[in-house]
Amino acid sequence: MYVEDDYLMLSGIQHFLFCKRQWALIHIEQIWSENIYTSQGQIIHQKVDQPFIKEKRRGLILSRAMDVSSCQLGLSGTLDLIEFHKAEEGVELENRSGKWQPVIVEYKRGKKKKYAYDEVQLMAQGICIEENLSIKLDYGYLYYQQTDTRERVDFTQDLRNLTIKSAQEMHDYYRRKYIPPAEYFKNCRLCSIYEECRPRLTKKSKNIQRYIYGAEL
């Protein structure tokens, strides 16, 4: 369990799984730059994250920009959207009659990814809601703007374990102020902090020496 002063940004867990060095440079070294992809992501979330806009339809309440946290994960952040569906097995809400089942919806700029980066972020949000509302969640949704698709994510035990392990590792890196060494991948140039990271130069010390001296040492 973590105390509030030690909480890290919940959204960072997606960055951490995508590239641990990127996460460390942003969250430990406080290095940040914008590019077209980060700007597009901010535009999408600005449209969604309106905390004072709540919609109610028959048997459904939509709440945006809800602040959540988890002492188990040591993370805090803001949800894009949480739907409350009227259901007997749900939770009670202030000034609302009956019980309501929460379902989280996280918005993403691109399309569904090969690896579970986004799913872990959604699961971390789910653990926050479970703690905050004292309820067990079975699933949530990822909405991908590029493909206009809404993907259901089941909150399996394997996904929970990966999320807890990732959060623990994030805290370990942050406590030690550890910056992982660079690894170069084909998508590195799409990263907003590519220039600050310089993965081609920092991947191996021998490569840096070649760059400086122009010869094999």
Rank of each mutant, 00 (worst) to 15 (best):
Y139V: 02
I31P: 02
L17F: 03
T163G: 13
Y184N: 10
G74V: 07
Q50G: 03
L25H: 00
V103P: 03
T163E: 12
V48K: 09
P199K: 06
I135E: 11
S166T: 14
V68Y: 08
G98P: 00
Q30C: 07
Y143F: 14
K111W: 01
G12Q: 06
R64I: 01
V103W: 04
N35Q: 06
I13T: 04
H27P: 00
E196D: 13
P102G: 10
K111I: 02
L73V: 07
G41V: 01
Q101S: 07
R198Q: 15
M123R: 11
Y115Q: 11
I193S: 13
I179L: 11
S166C: 07
N35S: 06
R189C: 08
E4V: 03
L217V: 00
K112Q: 09
Y7K: 14
Q121R: 08
I28W: 06
R150E: 14
Q42R: 13
Y37D: 12
N132K: 15
C188R: 06
I193A: 11
E83S: 12
H27N: 15
Q146G: 10
S76P: 00
S69C: 06
L190E: 10
K47H: 07
C71Q: 14
S39C: 12
I179C: 08
Q22N: 05
G12C: 09
L142D: 04
M1W: 10
I193T: 04
L8K: 15
D158E: 13
I179K: 04
D5K: 15
K186G: 02
Q50T: 05
H85I: 08
T202I: 02
H45A: 05
R109S: 13
Q101H: 13
R189V: 07
V153P: 07
R210I: 01
E92S: 12
E106F: 00
L17C: 14
A124E: 03
D172G: 11
Y139T: 01
I36Q: 15
L17Y: 03
E130F: 05
I44K: 08
Q30F: 11
L73H: 05
C71E: 15
E119K: 09
Q50A: 11
L81Q: 15
T149M: 11
Y143T: 02
H85R: 13
K86S: 09
F18L: 15
L142K: 14
Y211Q: 09
D67G: 04
Q146F: 03
L137W: 01
E196W: 02
F155E: 08
G59N: 11
Q146L: 10
Q30E: 12
T78R: 15
